[in-house]
């Protein structure tokens, strides 16, 4: 009996010590983790907008976030956007509700600060105060609108879809005409050497310069990439002076409507990528037009 008590006591104490160490490390690293993740995502975004060491990020670059929610009131669905608005010359956030038919339904201000709006829990508490039951809301996706002064630089769309092995997470940059300007793979779990090649320049850069019309009917073809196109796509391997501006324009024009060449040995992944990106672009272009119309007609003082 004495033995058992000693063992239990010893185990309890060691478990407690272990728990304290782990809890301490957890609280110590939690902040740094969030900060690093934020820096990581922001770094990807700015590099997708074309800023790097030689083109530093301008001071008047602003990134505004839109969060889309699906509202459901006894089976009647509508779309709610949490977006930044100007109120008393300051930026605050509001929920704009748009019906499925594209009609503006209402605007309600949210009590949430700019720092906290990126956290899903904070948005939930803020929305709880506005959306009254029986109406429910579920988070759908987010969009980032990048502006430099008054000029729209790009729409940045984070998105995810099923790849070959599991989910692929990507970030897409579209210009104001919904032409893809950059694509970045954020997370994937594909096989190295096969599906994981999607994050190589020669595959992901194929999506650049594809307009909405092209994307709507784009296909995946099982043909090797043309050599000159491939050299152009691998931008990090360019030799100095190899691509002059005229040459770049010529290649861009030539391959503007070219289909996506599948990766060798990873056709399913290539198809899934193309399908996923096609869906993202199409849905976004459709939605942002409706939202823009609704906002303009009702003179919502949006910040972007």
């Amino acid at each position: 009996m004495k033995e058992i008590i000693r063992i239990t006591l010893g185990l309890t104490i060691s478990c407690l010590i272990a728990g304290i160490i782990m809890g301490g490390v957890f609280t110590a690293t939690e902040k740094a983790k969030e900060h690093n993740e934020y820096l990581n995502v922001r770094g990807t975004m700015t590099s997708m907008l074309g800023f790097n060491a030689t083109h530093p990020v301008p001071a008047d670059l602003r990134l505004y976030s839109l969060y889309r929610y699906i509202l459901d009131k006894n089976g009647t669905k509508s779309i709610g956007y949490v977006l930044p608005v100007k109120k008393d010359k300051k930026i605050s956030y509001a929920l704009v509700t748009v019906g499925l038919d594209g009609k503006f339904k209402g605007l309600s201000y949210l009590n949430i600060s700019e720092e906290k709006v990126s956290k899903i829990e904070a948005r939930k508490t803020a929305l709880d105060a506005v959306v009254k039951p029986p109406e429910t809301f579920t988070y759908a996706d987010s969009t980032i609108i990048a502006k430099k002064g008054p000029k729209l630089l790009a729409y940045l769309l984070p998105g995810e879809f099923n790849g070959f092995k599991s989910v692929i997470k990507v970030m897409l940059a579209l210009n104001s005409k919904f032409t893809i300007t950059a694509l970045e793979i954020m997370e994937d779990d594909e096989d190295p050497g096969l599906g994981a090649e999607i994050s190589e320049e020669y595959f992901k850069n194929q999506f650049d310069d594809k307009s909405l019309q092209t994307m709507k009917k784009i296909k995946v073809i099982k043909q090797p990439l043309p050599n000159d196109y491939r050299r152009y796509l691998e931008k990090s391997k360019w030799k100095k002076g190899e691509f002059t501006k005229a040459k770049i324009d010529k290649i861009r024009k030539k391959y503007k409507d070219h289909d996506i060449c599948a990766l060798t040995g990873a056709t399913i992944t290539s198809r899934a990528m193309t399908r996923g990106i096609k869906g993202m672009v199409k849905k976004f272009a459709y939605r942002i037009r409706i939202l823009d119309n609704a906002l303009k007609q009702n003179k919502v003082p949006v910040a972007f």
């Binding site: 272990a18 160490i21 782990m22 490390v25 957890f26 690293t29 939690e30 740094a32 983790k33 690093n36 993740e37 990581n40």
Partner: peptide
Amino acid sequence: ATWVTVIDLTLAALAP
């Protein structure tokens, strides 16, 4: 397990 948790959390924070 304790030390693995420590390195796991640290790496997740510092080298995401």
